[in-house]
Design a protein around this nucleic acid. Structure first.
Lengths: 124, 124
DNA sequence: CAGTTACATCGATGAACGTCAATATCTCTT
DNA sequence: AAGAGATATTGACGTTCATCGATGTAACTG
C-alpha cells in the first residue's frame, strides 16, 4: 500500500463511530502510516520545538543522526501529506509544522460519544 | 522495527511538546504502526460498531474479506497492543475494544497549548 | 472416543519502505 | 562563468510485514 498524498477530512472518519469499508480504512491507514515512523515523528518534534517554529534541513540532519538524503526523503513525505509547510529562502529550505492535519487524525481516533455500549472486563 | 507489545503511557509523549529522542520516537511509532493498517482499523470499527460491543472471530472473517488466519493474526496484534480485550467462551473467542490506549495515542497527537509560535504561510 | 467446529500457529512468499552513496539541481559568491 | 554549498532525486539493498495454505490445538457433539 502506498503512502497517502494528502491528509484531509476525506481520510479521517471516526474509527469507532461506524464500520469502515475497505476504502475508508485504506485512506486512514495511509494517513496514519505517515506518522508511524520514528524519523518522521522526530522531525515533527524537532521542527515544532524550535523557537522560530521552523527549521532548515541543515539544522535537522545532525540531530537526526541520518543521512541528508534520508532526512530530505522524510521531509518530502511529511510535506506531501500536508503535515509540514515548506519555503525556500536562498540556498536554504525551511519547514514548519501545520497543525490542522494532525488534528484531523486525532479526530479519527476520538471515541463516538462516551461509552454507550456494554463492555466486558472494563477495568473498574 | 518490531511492532510494540503494549500501548501505555510510556509510549505516548506529546509529539509537539518537546523534541523526542530516538527511543521515544521508536516507541510511539511502534504504537502508531499498530493502528496504521487498514485491516486492523476495520476490525476495530467492526467490533466497536456491534450492538453488543463485542464480536467473535466467526463474525469477523466474512465481512473482512480476509482469510481466517489473517484475521486471527491482526486480532492478536491488536490484543497484544492492549487495544482489544479477549475472552474465550466455549468454542468461540470474543473480542471487544478497550478505549484507553486509543485515548493515549490521541493525547500524543495533541497540540502543546494552542499556537504560541509564529507560523509562516498559515492559511488565512 | 471419533468427528466436527472454531480459532491459533507455522512456514513461505511477495510487496512496501527506510536507508544510503552517488549524482543532479539550484543558489549564491567571487 | 566557475566554484562552492544546500537540498533533491535516483538507484540499489535489506528488512519488515501482510497475506495465505497447511497444520496444530482446544472445545463441544454424537
Amino acid at each position: 500500500m502506498k503512502l497517502i498524498q494528502t491528509i484531509d477530512a476525506e481520510c479521517c472518519p471516526q474509527v469507532l463511530a461506524a464500520p469502515l469499508d475497505r476504502e475508508e480504512a485504506d485512506r486512514l491507514a495511509g494517513a496514519l502510516k505517515v506518522l508511524a515512523d520514528p524519523a518522521r515523528l522526530q522531525l515533527l518534534s524537532l521542527i515544532g520545538a524550535t523557537p522560530e517554529g521552523e527549521a532548515c534541513v541543515c539544522n535537522l540532519v545532525e540531530p537526526m543522526g541520518l543521512s541528508q538524503p534520508t532526512v530530505s526523503h522524510h521531509l518530502k513525505v511529511l510535506t506531501n501529506a500536508g503535515l509540514l509547510g515548506r519555503e525556500q529562502r536562498g540556498r536554504w529550505v525551511y519547514y514548519w509544522v501545520l497543525p490542522e492535519p494532525i488534528e484531523l487524525l486525532r479526530g479519527a481516533l476520538a471515541g463516538p460519544i462516551a461509552e454507550p455500549k456494554p463492555r466486558r472486563k472494563a477495568a473498574g
